[in-house]
Amino acid sequence: MPEIQVVSLRYEIEDDLSLRYGHKLRGYFANNFKEILFHNHHDNGSLRYGYPLIQYKIVNKKPFILGINKGGELITEHFLSIEKLVLDNKEYLSPGGKLSVDRELIEVDNDYDMPVYKYNFITPWLGLSQDNYRVYRSKYIKAPQEDKMNFYKSVITGNILSFAKGIDWWVEEEIKVVPSLSDITVKFKGEEMLGFTGYFFSNVYLPEYIGLGKSTSRGFGTIIREKVI
């Protein structure tokens, strides 16, 4: 059961922003800070593979940056040097930033037969890799709902394990996931992609506002938590 540091940085600006600004927020920080966790690119241009420890989101239509462990330390270290934000060629001087630092114990709760946590996706979940998408198209797109949900269950379980690996947690207990999702079309980088909205139940305690699935560093797959038991 690892204890992790979770740092959130929220900005209050005069404009309401759409989800696509998560990508622009990431670009601004990537251009201004050299540490790899801000942009996940090595000096030679190759990608840092692994769960992103700094994630850029639009939450309640405002800029939101989440840092985990070393990512959180970097946000805290640079917080006071951020005197402006530039998003889509618009400059926000002295944006009102609120920094929160928390310690959270990540664990699997098997005290009950049913999963005790409910996680709502507040941004579309891009759960399907190229391989998973091919499987979904060939086997599940017209399958009964129960079969679809079993497929989503396996994918979300894999997403949780990717997060666990990113925080150096070896999960020995069984992970339980009960999803309820609907597919939607998502516009990403000018392309239409298959995404999902909805929620899932799990026996794993996950920090709020982390992302699961693809493009979590740009704000997709962001979850909020509620305890149901």
Rank of each mutant, 00 (worst) to 15 (best):
G198A: 09
I223Q: 04
F163E: 04
E35N: 12
T123M: 08
N150E: 15
Q145W: 11
Q130F: 07
V178A: 08
F79I: 01
I184W: 00
V204T: 11
L17P: 09
T222G: 05
V178T: 11
R48L: 14
H41S: 09
Y152P: 02
L161K: 15
T157L: 10
H41W: 03
E35I: 01
G211V: 06
D111C: 01
F220V: 02
Q5F: 07
S182E: 15
M149K: 13
Y209V: 01
F196Q: 13
Y51S: 03
S154T: 14
Y205I: 07
E91C: 10
V178M: 08
D147K: 15
S100M: 11
S129N: 10
L99F: 12
V155C: 08
V135H: 02
V101C: 11
T185Q: 11
V7D: 04
N60V: 01
A30L: 05
S215A: 14
G22S: 09
F220S: 01
K61N: 14
E173G: 02
M114I: 13
D131K: 14
D43V: 08
K98M: 07
G213T: 06
G127C: 08
S162L: 04
G166S: 09
K118T: 04
F201S: 02
S180N: 15
D147C: 02
A143E: 07
L9F: 12
